Structure formats: C-alpha cells, structure tokens
Simulated scan of single mutants.
Amino acid sequence: MDSPHGAAVTAEDFGLKGPRGWAFRGVRLDAPPGALIAIEGPSGSGRTCLLLALTGRMRASEGRAEVGGLRLPRQMAAVRRISALGPVPGVSELDPAFTVAEHLRERALLQRRYDGSLRALLRPRTERTAAARNRIDTALDTAGLDPANLPKAERTSVRDLERLEALRLSVALALIGRPRLLAVDDTDLKLSDAERAEAWELLRSVADSGTTVLAVCSQAPVGAITVRTATTATSGTSAASGTADITEADAADVSEPAEAPGATTEKTTDEKTTDEGTADAFAETGRA
C-alpha cells in the first residue's frame, strides 16, 4: 500500500461566530503536507470548533482556508472526504460496550460500503476480506496498538482500555480510511507526562508516514506548528517560532464590557463569550 499523501492546511483571518459570540477568530496558518499541527489552548477557547471547521464539519463565518487545495467553507464535503476524525467528544466517540474487534470490523465494513469503488465491491469475497484485514493491520501498526497485548486481546471492551490505548484505537479506526488529514481532539487530556510523550510520539509517527495531523491540546509539543486559541494570545504569526496565533479579544465586541480581572478564577467576559460561541456553533451542527 502506498503511503497517503498529506494535505497542506492554510488559513487567513479564519473565524466562526455563533449568535452570542465568536468561537474563534483571526486564525492564520500555513502548514505543509505531513505536518503535525497543534491547536493549543484552554478548554472552552474554541479549539474543537476550529478543528471541526478545518475538517469540513463546521461552517466558518469569515476568512478563508484550504485543505489539500480544497477551499473552505465552499468545499466542505470534499474536505470531509479526505479527512478523518480520531476521538472528538460528542462527535466521534468509541462505544464503551463494543469490543476492539467489533469497532475494527464495523469501521472496515463502513469503509468498504461507502468508500469502495465498484470494481472493489465486485471482487471475490476472499479478496475483499483479505484487503480489509490488511487495512486494519496497517492502521493498527501505525497507531502502535497490538490487540494481543490487551487483557482479552481483540475481545477487550473499550470500557476496559486505558486512556492511551483508547486513543491509539481511535487513531487506528480513523486511519483505516487512509485520510490525508487526521484530526484528534483532547490529545493530552488525563494523560501522565510519560503517556503524553507517547501520544505525541504516536502522532508524530503518523505525520512522518505522510498524513497531516491536526491535534487539539492544552500544551503543544516542541516542533509542532502551533495555533493558539487562548484569549490572551496576540494575533499574528511568529516567524521565529513558526507558530500561528489566534486572537479572540474581539469577542468583547459582541458582549458586555469585561470587568477588571480579580483574584478569583472566574472567566472574563471574553472567555465567557468564547464558551457561548462554541456552544452555539455546536448547537447549529446538532452536536451540542
């Protein structure tokens, strides 16, 4: 099997606005094929909405972006066909009652049903089965997941997987479709330092194999092309660090004036507006 060719991802003044505020705004990004792109920021800062917008799952409100030469939001359906979602809460999640084998078998069947060519569907059943098994094995190998090492091998239920094992399974499922862009949400959530390092090593290996990776996180790893969604970020691109930053200070334009920050940990008006804009954006796509 030929290695998939990653999709270049670019954006200029990219933004998504809900009825009560901006989920994100002013995104600038220029990443080559096969890059590891980290969307860094606190929870509620529009990270997931940006990930979904760049994979054609949410419609942006302003600016422009391209994924693999396909323009957003004009060609959202085409972008969805070349991208795949790993774990994204509320959008693409593992079923805790399913076993690893059941998830893999289901994804392979869906892949064959909806993405296979007519010629492939007309091949003998033994050939189709062998091709599906090869896709699964290749995806598992790339994701670094060996079912034989799980407590009950492929019969292990998702609810019995460790967090890092579940991440590897989600990545493997996404890679069965051989996407040009892989998107992963909450990459470093509930991971120890050692597990976080393993997770980034996994995503780097996927990028090195030719697939562009877009990953949401609270702290980006060294060497990744970083897009920051924190409300304190300054708009612009840093040539020295190679990072692309987002500003969401303009969210105050659609909300009440922010009070002076105090000693408490309550969110500022800007951050609240970002949360509301994110919730509205999810609601409009039926993913609230």
Rank of each mutant, 00 (worst) to 15 (best):
D2M: 06
S3D: 13
A7F: 00
V9S: 04
V9N: 02
E12D: 11
D13Y: 01
D13Q: 10
G15W: 08
L16S: 06
K17T: 14
F24S: 02
G26M: 05
G26R: 06
V27T: 12
D30R: 12
D30M: 05
P32L: 01
P33C: 00
P33S: 00
G34R: 00
I37M: 02
A38G: 11
A38V: 12
I39H: 12
E40V: 15
P42A: 07
P42N: 04
G44A: 04
G44H: 04
G46F: 15
G46W: 14
T48E: 10
L51K: 09
L52T: 01
L54F: 05
R57K: 11
R57P: 06
M58W: 03
E62K: 14
R64I: 12
G69M: 05
R74Y: 09
R74G: 09
Q75V: 03
M76S: 15
A78R: 15
A78C: 01
V79M: 03
R81A: 14
S83C: 03
L85A: 03
L85F: 04
G86F: 02
V88T: 02
E93Y: 00
A97E: 14
T99Q: 09
R105P: 01
E106W: 07
E106K: 05
E106Y: 08
A108Y: 09
L109H: 14
L110P: 04
L110A: 13
L110R: 15
R112S: 13
R112A: 15
G116E: 04
A131R: 02
R135T: 08
T138Y: 13
D141K: 13
T142S: 12
L145V: 06
D146W: 01
P147C: 07
P151Y: 04
A153E: 07
T156M: 10
V158C: 14
V158P: 13
V158D: 15
R163P: 08
L164N: 09
L164R: 10
L164F: 09
A166E: 09
A166F: 02
L167Q: 15
L169H: 07
G177I: 06
D185Y: 09
D186M: 09
D188F: 08
L191V: 07
D193E: 15
R196L: 08
E198G: 11
A199P: 03
L203K: 04
S205W: 03
S205Y: 04
V206A: 01
G210E: 01
T211K: 00
P221S: 06
T226H: 11
A230P: 07
G236S: 07
G236Q: 05
S241K: 09
G242E: 04
D245N: 08
D245Q: 08
E248W: 13
E248F: 15
D250N: 07
D253A: 15
T265S: 10
T265K: 06
E266Y: 02
T268D: 07
T269I: 01
E271N: 02
K272V: 10
T274A: 15
D275N: 13
E276D: 11
D280S: 00
A281S: 08
A281H: 02
E284H: 12
T285W: 01
G286R: 05
R287K: 11
